[in-house]
Design a protein around this nucleic acid. Structure first.
Lengths: 326, 326
DNA sequence: GGTCACGGAGACAACGTTATCACCCACACC
DNA sequence: GGTGTGGGTGATAACGTTGTCTCCGTGACC
């Protein structure tokens, strides 16, 4: 910029004014400066600018795994919202690991993003308090923050699970198994609660031995189904707590004679093309991402009202796999 | 940092030294500074640091669409490579639009990323020349750069298509249709070339009326299949040029009586669970992303050898849909 | 004709780091 | 006892912007 100023024979500040399109510069000056910029191939150094201004125009997004379809839809939504606000988006995957989540989030904050959207893996986010204190906006998506007050955009997991299990109960099922994510994952707990509530509302006893929660590994799923389908009172239906589990169950059931009814939480591509087509409780990742980003930008825009939680609704998409009668 | 220095009663530079773990600081000093940092909750300002050092420790990734499974696998790979090198990753979707790609890439460069991995949408990348001149490393992934010299990591699209079409020819098919991405998309052209080469190698005449290239919209696919399946010599097999087209074709075929054999370029989740399970030519997005990132970091590490192009191999995964005899 | 307002321009200090250099002291060497 | 030598430390100047303040005209107003 110094070079430009010299080359145009004007003051440094005048160049700055032209670059920023500030008023009160005579058109002759503008011309000269423009020409000099052209000649020297000058480009404003964003880093320096933001050092001075105190903002980076970047927001961070911490996900469980970028490659997960739920995450990618969420990313897409946050990205387009960010872009619309003139912000760039940094992304990173926590791999469902609380330490990694923390490292990543703090790395973003150290890089001085203006805000972060976090799909938390851990349940203690006190580490973020100093950052929030320092002015970083933080919005939690899909799962709430642990041990700090913060904005969150969630899905009505319990209600969704009730919807899915209710659908199975309507078909006459009374022995309904549940396979969900490991202990400690917020959404999984909420969905299990919905499963239980639906059963109890229908006066079907809740049987803990029909619930399997653990890592979504083909091995784990196989054991769980073995157990549920064995014995004098095998399950006639299964409610899965996430789409990876749903797919794993479908894979496993393909190897078996007995095919229980199935309803899964979270939709996935080609669910309608399988036979039978898979009934799911759909949550809208795009809306989730968009909403979270909107809250974030409201905060960045100066909204200092107290933290709020938004809960999005789910909807049942009956496709057939839930309608196999008991 | 000034505050820390005052609080600890030491010089500014000493704080800097402690923060950066530089040698030649007495342990007493380290203690005092550490304490002061603790007391004041000091955190190094990355922006200022990088302004001084000239690097941002950020790389950008420009994709067609973050939400596409191919892209997400690629993202994941680039991300983990970046993270391993201590870099943060910025992502953005071009939406297969050359203008958007350019805007996004330049926005990354303006944000002073140290390098970019670009899955190009356009075919003219001269706009990147000044940036590369200015020291930004650029690696193209999946498709080559247009009108500039740059590193590229590609897939052997032509060979892959030959593989897929060859598989159909082996099953006795002679009327094989091809549905691929619109004109102007590099990979689509290459795959169509492979399709043609395979036919000619088998002395089957290449019939342009059996080729449909356009946007992956259900409507377009329907028309294409209508045409291919009508007339006195309908196709007995279809080779699709990308996974979105493959899925669209499967969706469409589900509504028809006549079911031609099908081989698709690019694998997708649940391809093995459909009936018939879908035979595909698989390309490894993770390897592609990892390789591109590795080349990028070699460049950032000071490798100034001339631009090179790496081509990755594909492999055929026979699952059944290609084995329907003519 | 003096003052006032205002448009146009530049000097200078900041933003928060790091690099360079100079300094001081202690110890070993001739 | 001078003279290196080298570890430990701090002043100071960058890095490339933008905010603030000042300055200089020019025309309008009393």
């Amino acid at each position: 910029m110094n070079d430009v100023a010299r080359h145009a024979g004007v003051g440094l500040k005048t160049v700055s004014r032209v670059v920023n399109g500030e008023p009160r510069v005579s058109s002759a000056m503008v011309q000269r400066v423009r020409q000099a910029i052209e000649d020297l191939g000058f480009r404003r150094h964003e880093g320096a600018r933001l050092l001075r201004r105190g903002r980076t125009a970047c927001v961070g997004l911490v996900l469980e795994d970028v490659a997960d379809p739920f995450s990618s839809a969420l990313t897409r939504a946050v990205e387009s919202e960010a872009w619309a606000n003139g912000f760039l988006l940094l992304t990173g995957s926590s791999g469902e690991d609380a330490v990694q989540e923390r490292e990543l989030t703090l790395a973003f904050c150290a890089g001085r993003v203006d805000g972060v959207v976090v799909v938390p893996a851990g349940d203690d986010h006190r580490y973020l308090a100093p950052e929030i204190e320092a002015g970083v906006a933080a919005v939690f998506a899909d799962r709430p923050a642990g041990r700090i007050e913060a904005d969150a955009v969630l899905v009505d997991n319990t209600g969704g699970a009730r919807l899915g299990v209710g659908h199975l109960l309507e078909q006459g099922h009374r022995r309904i198994g549940h396979i969900g994510d490991a202990e400690g994952i917020f959404t999984a707990g909420e969905r299990q609660r919905g499963y239980r509530e639906a059963l109890e509302a229908a006066e079907v006893p809740y049987d803990p031995s029909l619930v399997a929660r653990g890592p979504v590994e083909q091995e784990f799923i196989r054991h769980a189904l073995d157990r549920m389908l064995a014995g004098p009172e095998p399950v006639t239906a299964v409610f899965t707590g996430n789409n990876r589990a749903t797919v794993a169950v479908i894979r496993d059931l393909a190897t078996r004679e007995r095919r229980p009814a199935l309803v899964g939480f979270d939709d996935f591509e080609l669910a309608d093309m399988l036979s039978p087509a898979v009934t799911v409780v759909a949550q809208d990742a795009a809306v989730l991402g968009r909403t979270a980003a909107q809250v974030l930008f409201q905060r960045l825009g100066g909204d200092v009202s107290s933290a709020r939680t938004i809960e999005l609704q789910t909807r049942l998409i009956p496709r057939g796999s839930g309608e196999i009668p008991a």
